[in-house]
Design a protein around this nucleic acid. Structure first.
Length: 571
DNA sequence: TAAATTGGCGCC
DNA sequence: AAAGGGCGCCAATTTA
């Protein structure tokens, strides 16, 4: 599958946009240093389009440059995003928090004062597309960018696992391309369907921005149940009202409310559910975020420390299930919705190399069922809770009880997350499989010393660890690092999945495009006749991602797929 | 008055 | 039955 490999060297060029809409470019050798002279082209897109032999474009920031190429109809196969790589390398070096702009990297290289990063700008729904903004370059000439790039190559060599680190920066760069393409494509969204649903759920929308009819009615029911006016959206008011009724609660979370026997509970819970839809995905959301039949969130690959993506504006990764009815394929097209099955347990099997868990994860069938057959006398729910509890660091409840059984049967898997938790409690850093590194504990830093950090050897300066005892802060940090190694390695795999899928769709010359990605789930929008091939492409990409990320492993990465007209029809 | 924090809940 | 990881978003409240 030549179109799907992740070649790291060959045909690399560095490019930097100029103020006048052109670009400066130079070919790069294997060492990352320039080969030949810098050339200037009058038009950025033409400069790229005219060099089809280039297999990887090295540039400062994909988010800055690629939308403009896409607008001109130019797609690129691969890129290397210098500022993204800088962030990953800094993290790996235990220096997360230092400025990551190319200008900062260049200044560090030359022992000059390091400029702080510009503040991140929040997405505004009505904001002009970056297409019409001038390049937001940092004023660094191409020659300096290339110096930073060559230095980054050396820093990859110095990483704990240089090959994996290269894979990490290459795949996150690919993720940047995917993100820009998805931002451009948008998720098909039927505003009329959405409005119908809002009306059905919430009732009429009153002018002046007040609560819709159904919410007002529920608020009245809550008040009637208490015998006085109570505002259901104010936790303090609700807690006080229950106290007056002789019921002591400390929070108004749904699970806490549902324990209570009181006539206010039912309307209160219903109110919270609908209130959430009204404020987060209601009429004003629709107005702000849906244009021309598409919802266009801004994806940020690696936006969370674990490497999961985030979105900026529009809450794209929290679309309530009921609202998904509004996600409808175009006429004659379909949505291929693919969900990776039990991704995190499978990733734990691959990274811990626990023989028993690898065997359980070596089949496409339901992982929790085979887990429970082996270790929980067929009790699937207990098996699932135990495994998730181990990954999340559960501290009480049934999950904890069943952890003992899990530890007996799958000692290496449990030890892997336990070791990560211990590292976190002791203030050390942990890494994902490909080398993304957890941030230093709060209060650590400042005293960073020379030399390359090795796994588990980075000191913390918060001084709160004492042998045999961990403070609640330390334990919280342990839960974080415990989960980080699994969630983050799963994000590693997901990046490779996206890169492989993108390459596969492009090489097959399909009209299909990726339109949604959410941790372990992708949606591809495609003509009906391409749907079967898309399903195949997704399955192959998942397996390929597993092999590239984790090497020779028996662990399988199957998907549940659905070819549907509406997102809500999947699952 | 603006920025930061809190509580709650949606998704994974 | 009870609450462990990661986010973004909203409204209200507290802090600067």
């Amino acid at each position: 599958m030549p179109g799907v490999t992740l070649a790291l060297v060959d045909g690399k060029w560095a490019i930097d946009p100029t103020e006048d809409g052109g670009a400066r470019l130079v070919a790069l050798g294997r060492d990352g240093l320039p080969e030949g002279a810098v050339v200037h082209e009058g038009e950025l897109a033409a400069a790229v389009r005219g060099r089809p032999e280039v297999t990887r474009w090295v540039w400062r920031s994909t988010a800055d440059i690629y939308p403009r190429l896409l607008a001109a109809g130019v797609r690129v196969e691969r890129c290397y995003d210098i500022e993204d790589a800088e962030l990953l390398l800094l993290g790996h070096e235990g220096r997360l928090g230092e400025p990551r702009s190319a200008a900062a990297a260049w200044a560090r290289l030359h022992r000059l004062p390091v400029p702080p990063d510009p503040p991140a700008r929040a997405a505004e729904p009505g904001r002009q597309s970056p297409l019409f903004e001038p390049p937001s370059g940092t004023g660094l000439p191409l020659e300096a960018l290339v110096e930073v790039y060559a230095d980054q190559q050396k820093r990859h060599d110095a990483a704990l696992h240089p090959g994996r680190m290269r894979l990490l920066t290459a795949s996150e760069s690919a993720g940047m391309l995917v993100a820009a393409e998805m931002n451009r494509a948008g998720l098909p969204w039927r505003a009329d369907v959405h409005r119908e649903m809002l009306h059905g759920l919430l009732g009429e929308r009153y002018a002046g921005g007040g609560e819709p009819r159904r919410l007002a009615e529920l608020a009245d029911e809550v008040s009637a149940a208490f015998g006085r006016r109570v505002r259901p959206d104010l936790p303090a008011d609700v807690i006080k009202a229950f106290a007056e009724a002789g019921i002591r609660i400390t929070s108004t979370r749904r699970w806490a409310l549902e324990e209570i026997d009181h006539p206010a509970v039912a309307p209160l819970v219903e109110y919270k559910k609908l209130y959430r839809i009204w404020t987060a995905h209601g009429w004003s959301w629709l107005q702000d975020w849906v244009r021309d039949g598409r919802f266009r969130p801004e994806y940020t690959p690696g936006g969370s420390v674990s490497g999961r993506w985030t979105t900026n504006g529009g809450g794209a990764l929290q679309i309530p299930k009921v609202i998904r009815q509004a996600v409808v394929a175009d006429e004659g097209w379909r949505l291929v919705v693919a969900d990776a099955d039990q991704m995190e347990p499978r990733v734990l099997a691959a990274i811990s190399r626990d023989p028993g868990l690898m065997e359980v994860a070596g089949h496409d069938g339901d992982l929790y069922t085979s887990l429970s057959d082996r270790a929980f006398s067929g009790d699937r729910e207990h098996a699932k809770l135990a495994l998730l509890g181990a990954i999340y660091g559960q501290t009480s409840g049934d999950g904890l009880k069943n952890l003992a059984a899990l530890r007996r049967r799958f000692p290496k898997a449990v030890a892997y997350v336990d070791d990560a938790a211990k590292a976190g409690e002791e203030g050390r850093l942990v890494r994902t499989w490909l080398g993304r590194t957890s941030p230093p504990a709060a209060g650590a830093g400042e005293d960073g010393e020379a030399g390359l950090p090795q796994e588990g050897e980075l000191p913390s300066s918060d001084g709160e660890f004492t042998p045999g005892y961990a403070s609640s802060n330390a334990r919280a940090r342990g839960r974080f690092t415990r989960n980080f190694v699994v969630q983050g390695s799963a994000a590693d795999w997901a990046l490779l999945l996206l890169a492989a899928l993108r390459a596969s769709l492009a090489s097959a010359g399909m009209r299909a495009e990726l339109v949604f990605f959410q941790h372990d789930e992708v949606i591809v929008h495609c003509p009906l006749e391409e749907a079967a091939d898309v399903v195949t492409a997704i399955r192959s990409a998942g397996e390929l991602a597993g092999r590239i990320a984790f090497g020779d492993t028996p662990v399988r990465f199957p998907f549940t797929t659905a070819v549907v007209e509406r997102y809500s029809e999947a699952k």
